[in-house]
Every structure is written in structure tokens, then in C-alpha cells.
């Protein structure tokens, strides 16, 4: 028999691919249905009908939708996602640095938020119903309740305007050193940590508490193990599945869903790129962003499921 992990990878890779195809069709058809087209966008509002129809002919816009989709996919597979109208540069060239920026921001935020949230969740679970538990819950709920644009500006007001510790705008120059990066990212990362910490913390707490109700935890107590060892060695590993799932989804949403934070700090990431692309009717760029977002989500979802299986012997090790 095939190893369960291998069959899982094959199965999920297949269904991930199908999702990607469906999303790409939706994105392509969706953008094709928007008013105006590439010819209009290139020539502007004052273009003559004749010039428009000539350009359409030249760009292949009169071809059937199916053919255009096919050409688009074929191009994308070779790393060519068309030309961005607004910047007159290849879409891929525009996209890659922005994606890198987004990844840097998201991963830095995750690197701080996830360990912090999981640690706080464990502490809260260990001290269930205590003052400490309630404080952790309350503070993290406050932080998540404040909209990101507000907490972002509050942070700018305090740490940039008044104290002058960090810049209010996260603008990265090409010559930036690591220290420059850290300095520039401090406030946006803090904002992102605020909005993500509560979910992960509460989920960790719940997952550990539900495991703590198991018979094998009782057994560990009866064996005379210390509370610390029980939580860290016996409860936490069994609570990893849900914790890893939410961690992966948190990273994914940090990468694609932080438009507001990027706007507040004028950070040049993916979110801002897509908003701008829509505003300028830069359809090839919008399409590329859409596909890129869904790819990120599919990959991280896959990672979440894969890791869940990896940490669960019942799924990982064949029965017989």
C-alpha cells in the first residue's frame, strides 16, 4: 500500500491545482466583464473609435474569450503575464518586488505574533480562569477590536511623531541595510501583531484545554509528572494540529490581506499594488494579483493540512 502521507500529497496537489484553475477562470472572466478594456485604457478617454478598433485587433481583444484565456494561461506558464498598462513594464517585473516586500512584512509579523500568541495561549491555559488568564484574554481582545488603521495611526502618533523612535512611513530604499529594514518595519509589524494575536492565542488556549480533558492527561498527572511537563510534553503536541492550521492561515492572510496597514504606512506591498491596479484599470496586473493571492492561500492551506498530518501519528503512521 502507498504511504498515507504520499497519497495525501498527491490528492491535495491535485485539488490545489483544480482550485487554481477555477480561480484563474473566475479572475479572467471577472476582469473581462469590467467596463472598458485594454485598448481603452491605453488610448485614454479621447481615443477615436477607429484607433480603438485597430488597437483591439492588434492586441487580440476581438478573439473569443476562451482563446484569450488560453493565451493568457500559456503566457503565465512561461512567466509572461502581459504588460502592465500603468507602468508599461512586464507584470511579472512589477509583481515580484511587491510580493517580496509583502512576504517580508508578513513573515516578520508572523515571526513575532505566532510565538507570542502560542506562548500566551499556553500560559492562559495553564492558569485557566485566573486573573492572568483573563488579563491575557482581555488585552488581546482589545487589540484585535481596534481597527488596524486606528491602531496604526496611534502607533505613528506615539512612536514616530512624539518619541521619534521609528519612521511613520515604511519606505524602503534599495540600499537599505538590515537595520534600516527593522527600523522601517517596526510599526507596521506591531500593528499586524495586534490584529492577529487574539485569534491564535484563543485558539491555542482552547485547543490545549480540550486536550487537557483527555484521559491520557489524567494518566500523566497520576504518574506524578509536573504540570509544566504535562502541558508542554503531553498536551501541546496533541494540540498542534489546530494551532498549525491557524498559524498557516494567519501567515497567508497577512501576505494578501493587509491593504489597510500597507496604506497607513505607505508600504509598497501586494495589497496596495492591487488596489492601485484596480484604480488604474490595469487589468493584466489585477489578474496577476488575483492569481497570486489565490496561489498563496492554496499553498498555505496545503501546508496547514500537511503539517497537521505530520504531527499526528494516527494519520502519519499506517495502522497495521
Amino acid at each position: 500500500m502507498r504511504h498515507p502521507l504520499l497519497s495525501f500529497v498527491i490528492q491535495r496537489a491535485g485539488s490545489g491545482l483544480i482550485s487554481l484553475v477555477v480561480v484563474s477562470v473566475l479572475v479572467f472572466v471577472g476582469t473581462a466583464m469590467l467596463p472598458g478594456d485594454a485598448a481603452q485604457a491605453i488610448l485614454g478617454q479621447d481615443a477615436t473609435p477607429q484607433a480603438l478598433s485597430e488597437l483591439r485587433q492588434e492586441l487580440g481583444l476581438n478573439d473569443p474569450l476562451f482563446l484569450r484565456y488560453w493565451n493568457w494561461v500559456a503566457g503565465a506558464l512561461q512567466g509572461d503575464m502581459g504588460m502592465s498598462f500603468s507602468s508599461k513594464r512586464p507584470v511579472v517585473e512589477v509583481l515580484i518586488p511587491r510580493l517580496t516586500n509583502s512576504m517580508i512584512l508578513a513573515l516578520s509579523a508572523a515571526a513575532i505574533a505566532l510565538p507570542l500568541a502560542i506562548g500566551l495561549g499556553i500560559i492562559a491555559a495553564l492558569n485557566r480562569e485566573s486573573l492572568l488568564d483573563r488579563m491575557i484574554s482581555m488585552v488581546s481582545m482589545w487589540l484585535v477590536s481596534i481597527p488596524a488603521f486606528l491602531s496604526g495611526y496611534i502607533l505613528i502618533n506615539i512612536f514616530s511623531t512624539r518619541l521619534g523612535w521609528f519612521p511613520g512611513l515604511a519606505i524602503i530604499r534599495s540600499s537599505a541595510t538590515l537595520a534600516d529594514w527593522a527600523n522601517a518595519l517596526a510599526l507596521p509589524v506591531a500593528t499586524l501583531v495586534f490584529i492577529t494575536i487574539a485569534h491564535t492565542m484563543r485558539l491555542t488556549r482552547t485547543a490545549i484545554l480540550s486536550v487537557m480533558a483527555s484521559d491520557y492527561i489524567l494518566m500523566a498527572e497520576i504518574k506524578g509528572l509536573s504540570p509544566r511537563r504535562i502541558v508542554l510534553k503531553h498536551a501541546l503536541p496533541n494540540a498542534l494540529s489546530p494551532i498549525l492550521s491557524i498559524s498557516m492561515l494567519t501567515i497567508a492572510s497577512l501576505m494578501v490581506g493587509v491593504v489597510v496597514v500597507e496604506a497607513v504606512f505607505s508600504y509598497t506591498g501586494m495589497g496596495k499594488l492591487m488596489v492601485d491596479a484596480v484604480a488604474y484599470r490595469d487589468l493584466p496586473l489585477v489578474q496577476a494579483c488575483g492569481v497570486c493571492f489565490s496561489l498563496v492561500f492554496i499553498l498555505f492551506n496545503f501546508a496547514a493540512d500537511f503539517l497537521s498530518i505530520l504531527v499526528n501519528p494516527r494519520l502519519r503512521e499506517p495502522k497495521a
Binding site: S214, D215, Y216, L218, M219, A220, I222, K223, H234, P237, N238, V311, N312, P313, R314
Partner: peptide, 14 residues
């Protein structure tokens, strides 16, 4: 020492 009723539940699956 203690021997529990359901060994399936009393052993840590991890």
C-alpha cells in the same frame, strides 16, 4: 502505580 480502564484513551497518541 495506576492502570486505567481504557488503555486506548490513557496512552498519549503522540
Amino acid at each position: 502505580a495506576y492502570v486505567a480502564q481504557s488503555a486506548a484513551a490513557a496512552f498519549n497518541p503522540f
